[in-house]
């Protein structure tokens, strides 16, 4: 079986600054698989997430192959790419206040995902938006849908983003630090929701984070990104028990409880 996502020798350079951010990333992801990308700041993890969907800022140059469901996303024309984004592969960003339109009610923003992808019945789009907002744990979703982003809490906003991403039942969800800006108890709730939705839908999840705890409790396989390269790729239990690369070892050591330290 072909993998759902296959990245071959992906490079991203910042020519203006004369530096490389990604230096030959290889990764594959099967349908329904949960994979975590662990990296410290500056490791290139956000650049990787953006590069997968051709969302890099214009100042950055990418080369390499990003194959998703048999299409090379890097060479797909704009219309074909738009058909993939949102429908087959969706993304959740870290900061929901910047990812949401401040001047549009959140229900309309979720419903817009459906209408942009061909749903002609606006009322039906809104109904499915409200239904999904309810399933992501928003209390009184009909009322919340009428609110603007600033009238919601951080956790509620992140649930809205997740609803937008899940509306068309994507095969792959890319989530870049989706809980880092949240309070710890809200983070735990949103992670739980993410795990439930992943399992219920059988979708693949690529979760990008600096937090090994978040990744280890959500993903079955972990990749460690360091200096623009993947330096380790292992099933979660193996990475926790016996990290090989020194950087991976250092990261595991920061969360290893005292009784498990050598």
């Amino acid at each position: 079986m072909n993998p759902l996502l296959s990245v071959q020798d992906l490079h991203v350079d910042a020519p203006g600054e004369g530096r490389s951010i990604l230096r030959g990333v290889h990764l594959t992801l099967d349908a329904g698989e949960t994979v975590g990308v662990l990296g410290t700041s500056g490791s290139g993890k956000t650049t990787l997430a953006l590069a997968l969907l051709n969302l890099l800022p214009p100042a950055l140059r990418a080369r390499g192959r990003v194959e998703f469901e048999g299409h090379d996303l890097r060479t797909l024309n704009h219309a074909a790419l738009c058909a993939v984004r949102g429908r087959r592969c969706a993304m959740v960003f870290q900061e929901p206040l910047t990812a949401l339109n401040p001047r549009q009610r959140v229900g309309a923003q979720v419903a817009e995902v459906a209408t942009a992808h061909g749903e002609h019945d606006a009322a039906r789009a809104m109904r499915s938006a409200i239904d999904l907002l309810g399933r992501t744990g928003l209390t009184d979703p009909g009322e919340r849908a009428q609110r603007f982003p600033h009238q919601l809490s951080g956790g509620e906003r992140q649930r809205v983003l997740l609803a937008m991403a899940l509306l068309l039942d994507p095969a792959l969800l890319i989530a870049d630090e989706p809980t880092s800006a949240l309070d710890v108890t809200v983070q735990a709730q949103v992670l739980q929701l993410l795990r439930e939705q992943q399992r219920a839908r059988g979708m693949a999840l690529l979760l990008v984070s600096h937090d090994l705890g978040v990744l280890a409790t959500t993903c079955r396989r972990l990749l460690v990104l360091h200096g623009g390269r993947i330096v380790e790729d292992a099933p979660t239990p193996q990475l926790l028990a016996a990290p090989v690369h020194p950087h991976a070892r250092a990261l595991v050591d920061t969360v290893r409880p005292a009784e498990r330290r050598a």
Binding site: T185, Q187, L212, G213, V214, V255, R256, P257
Partner: peptide
Amino acid sequence: QALLAAIPKIPW
């Protein structure tokens, strides 16, 4: 208790 429960339980 809630703050403690919110710490991800790494499956060592």
